[in-house]
Amino acid sequence: MHPAPSLILFTTLSGLGFGLLAFLCLGLPDARGLTAVLWFGAGFALAGGGLLASTTHLGNPQRAWRAFTQWQTSWLSREAWLSVIALAAAGGVALGRVFFDLPMTGLGTVAAGLALATVASTAMIYAQLKTVPRWNHWTTPALFLSMALAGGALLAGQMTVAPVLLLLAGAVQLLAWRTGDGRFAARGHGLTSATRLEGGKVRSFAPPHTGSNYLLREMVHQVGRRHARKLRSLALIFGFLAPALLCLTAHPLALALAVLSHAGGAMAGRWLFFAEAEHVVGLYYGYHEAGAR
């Protein structure tokens, strides 16, 4: 799949933002007054900024409000609702903490749950697609949720739980790669099932047009795969291992470095999430067949 910068930014930033908001709403840390303004401001900026980034990949963003209408069937619509409700609930918690010095425990717990539900609904947009076997698995929501929790704990300065959550997210990432690599072939997708042609070896002889098209640009991303192995290592090191180690030092500068390292590693991992995902439509163009390009 095409690794669109808007989608990479959206999923990583909003994941971090909603993760941070979840911890803040639970009172970890229980900031009040001006400190709460800064904490919640960072959470809203990340989550809201991510959501805004996502609208830039729309063909007609002026009609984006229509995405709230189909929550009964569409995960994208559910995500739209959940994100707005979660932000509103977190806003309520922030108001109570900033202006009234209230703990807001009840609403805080609900808001934290809604923030994580938003992350899960984002993941389900990808996990529901049977056409992309690498995504169509429980490891996709597990990865998005564990990343949001790890990044949120790190941003919220939860130095005891953050290293554990970071290593857990790293393990989920490793599992997602390991199980995802063979899933396309394991599900029996191939040029034979795509064309139902029989009687011998089938191969793509000529594409429909000599030029490229929307389908190839959007769903048959091929560039950079050869660096995938190196990028995976870098994403693991910078995204999870380095920040986990830096957390143990408990130095403020180390914490800032850990956040930067995690964000960079997470973006590399999210780039791979898209770039390595094979869509079955590529079969019709001669890609993804076992032993083919």
């Binding site: 063909g59 007609n60 229509r66």
Partner: peptide, 25 residues
């Protein structure tokens, strides 16, 4: 009513849907 998010094209296994680059639908 189409916002041009492209998710339906992702969901189609056959490549039957194409986003028009001019109209964004």
């Amino acid at each position: 009513a189409c916002i041009g998010c492209g998710l339906c094209a992702w969901a189609c296994p056959y490549g039957a849907r194409e986003m028009d680059a001019d109209a964004g639908v």
